[in-house]
Design a protein around this nucleic acid. Structure first.
Lengths: 217, 217
DNA sequence: CCTAACTCGAACACCAGCGTTCTAGTTAGA
DNA sequence: TCTAACTAGAACGCTGGTGTTCGAGTTAGG
C-alpha cells in the first residue's frame, strides 16, 4: 500500500491530474514493479531496469511511465521496505527494563536487516547518504529513544556520545547479517550473539556485564 | 615496492621473459599507477580507468600494458594497501595485558581503516568476497590470535563464537570510520570510543567492564 | 651506440544499460 | 458503450566505459 507516494517533489513521468486517483490496473502494476524490484535487488544489487520490468511481468516502457529512472525506483523500494519494517517494529514492546527491551528490539530488527541487506547495498550505490539516513529516520529515532532511556536509568553507559551507541547497535546487526550470508555465523545464533555483545558494549564502565537471556530462540 | 606481483596466475598483458627484470621506467610507471589508483579510488570508488591513467600521468594504453583490466588493478591496490597496513601493525606491541594490547592495536588500525575505507568500498564492488577476505588474512589472523589469548587469560568472553568477536572488532572500526566521514563522530574521539565499546563487548558476562585508558590521545 | 623495451595518443570496435518515441492494442470505469 | 487511461513491444539514439590496434616516438641499459 502507498507504494509510490513520490508526492511533492517531481511526479513520476506519468502526470496525474490533481485530485484524481490512478486507474486500478496502474496501481496494481506499480505494486508489482516495486515487489519485483525488491526481490530482484535482494538477489543482485546490480539488477538492471530491464531485469526488474521482466520480473514484474511488465514492459520496460510501463516501468518508465511510473518511475523516472533507477534512482527513483530504488528510492520507492527502500521507502516501502523501511516503512514495513517500522510497522513491524511497532509491535515490539519497548517499555520495561531497557536491556530486555533492547534485546527484544534487536531480535525483531535483526531478521529484517538480514532479509534486506542487499536492498540496502543497492540503495547505497544509487542514493545519496543523506537520503538513506532520512528514510531510516523513524527506526533510528526508536533506537535512540530506547538508549536514552537506558542511560537515564543508569543501565547504559554515558561516557561516549549517544550517537555512537546507536551506530554500534546498527553496526553489529549489519555485521551479523553479513557474517551470516557468508556462512560464518549460524542464523539461529545471531540474535543471541548480537544481544550479548551489544548489551555488554552498552554497559557502563565499572558495572557488571549482564548474562544473556537465552530463553527465547 | 613489489607493486605488481601478479605472478603465478595470468601475467599482466605485457609478457615478461622469465628470469628477467622489468625495465626501470616500467617499474616506475607501475608504481605511479598504483599510487594514483589508490588516491583516485579513495576520492571516488567509481573512478574510471581513464581517470586513473590521467592522474598517474600515463597513457591509458600503458596502464593496460601492465594490468588486465580494472579488477586486476584494484586487486593490486588492495594488496599493496593491506601489505603496508600489515607492516605498520607489525610495529604494534601485542604482548602484555590483552586488553591494553587490543587498545593499542585498535588505535593503530583505526587510522588505516579510516584512510582507506573508500578503497575497500571500491574493492567490494569489483572483487569477489573470498578474495577480499584472503587479502585480509594476515591482519585477521593477528586480531584472532590476540582475542584467543585474551580468552585464555579469562579476560575476554567465551560464550559466543570467537569468529564473532573478530567480526565485532572490525565492524566497530569500520562503523567509526563511516560515522567519522559523515561528521557524526570526531576523528580524535574515535580511537577512545571504539576501544571503550569494544573492550566492554568482549568482557565476559558477570565481569566488570573496564574503564577506558584515556591517557593516550 | 644500438637494440629491445617501453611509451604515447588517437582511433576504433564494442558493449550494456538508459531513456525516448512510435504504433497499435487493451482495459477500466463513468 | 465510448472515451480516456493505460499497456506492450520494437526500434532508435545516446552515453560512458572497456579493451585493442596502429604507427611513431623515446629511453634504458648491455
Amino acid at each position: 500500500m502507498a507504494a509510490s507516494q513520490a508526492g511533492q517533489a517531481r511526479p513520476a513521468a506519468q502526470t496525474v491530474p490533481p485530485g484524481t486517483q490512478r486507474r486500478a490496473d496502474a496501481r496494481r502494476n506499480i505494486a508489482s514493479i516495486v515487489d519485483a524490484a525488491t526481490s530482484c535487488l535482494a538477489r543482485d544489487p546490480d539488477a538492471s531496469i530491464g531485469d526488474i520490468a521482466r520480473a514484474a511481468g511488465v514492459g520496460r516502457v510501463t516501468l518508465y511511465g511510473h518511475f523516472n529512472g533507477r534512482a527513483e525506483l530504488i528510492d520507492a523500494v527502500l521507502t516501502r521496505t523501511l516503512a514495513e519494517a517500522d510497522a513491524t517494529l511497532d509491535a515490539v514492546d519497548t517499555t520495561g527494563d531497557p536491556r530486555e527491551a533492547l534485546t527484544r528490539l534487536v531480535g525483531a530488527s535483526w531478521r529484517i536487516v538480514h532479509q534486506f541487506r542487499s536492498v540496502l547495498h543497492a540503495a547505497q550505490r544509487e542514493l545519496p547518504p543523506e537520503r538513506i539516513r532520512a528514510v531510516h529516520d523513524r527506526i533510528l529515532r526508536r533506537v535512540r529513544t530506547l538508549i536514552e532511556r537506558g542511560q537515564r536509568t543508569g543501565q547504559f553507559r554515558r561516557d561516549v556520545p549517544r550517537q555512537w551507541l546507536v551506530t554500534t547497535t546498527f553496526s553489529l546487526m549489519h555485521a551479523a547479517a553479513d557474517d551470516c550470508a557468508a556462512g560464518r555465523l549460524r542464523a539461529d545464533d545471531a540474535a543471541r550473539v548480537i544481544a550479548a555483545t551489544l548489551l555488554a558494549a552498552l554497559t557502563p564502565p565499572g558495572d557488571t556485564v549482564p548474562a544473556v537471556d537465552t530463553s527465547r530462540s
